[in-house]
């Protein structure tokens, strides 16, 4: 038991010593997997970067949604204005304003028999 504790104590002190000396990774033979460690850091950075880009894109999506909504509103209002010009009485008034003699028919049009 005392040897176990000494073993554990020894391991911990070795770890601490190697960290302070700056050769911890070497002692645990992590130099072989050093590229993988760098790769993991790279992945983490990439994940954060992509997350930021996604958020930026989503913010753009929301802005575009607002623009689309504005366009739809504009279209709807123009449609209403355009349709209101198609009212029979309105057409009659516009024709009269322009001095036209064209007006609403007072009898049905004759048809040519084909």
């Amino acid at each position: 038991m005392a040897e176990g504790r000494r073993g554990l104590k020894g391991i911990l002190s070795n770890v601490l010593r190697s960290i302070l000396q700056g050769n911890f990774l070497q002692r645990i033979h992590a130099d072989k997997v050093f590229p993988q460690i760098i790769y993991i850091f790279l992945l983490a950075w990439l994940a954060i970067f992509l997350n930021i880009q996604i958020e930026k894109t989503m913010a753009k999506v929301e802005k575009n949604k607002e623009k689309l909504e504005e366009t739809e509103i504009h279209h709807a209002q123009k449609t209403v204005e355009y349709v209101s010009l198609g009212r029979l009485s309105t057409v009659k008034e516009l024709l009269e304003e322009k001095g036209s003699e064209v007006g609403i028919p007072d009898k049905p049009a004759a048809r040519i028999d084909k």
């Binding site: 609403i104 009898k107 049905p108 004759a110 048809r111």
Partner: peptide, 21 residues
């Protein structure tokens, strides 16, 4: 009068042999 005047199906039919009005 308004409804009848708007619908050309109520109008006179000019046949081929007719004189133009």
């Amino acid at each position: 009068d308004g409804i009848i005047a708007m619908d050309s199906s109520n109008g006179k039919v000019i046949h081929r042999s007719s004189a133009m009005p």
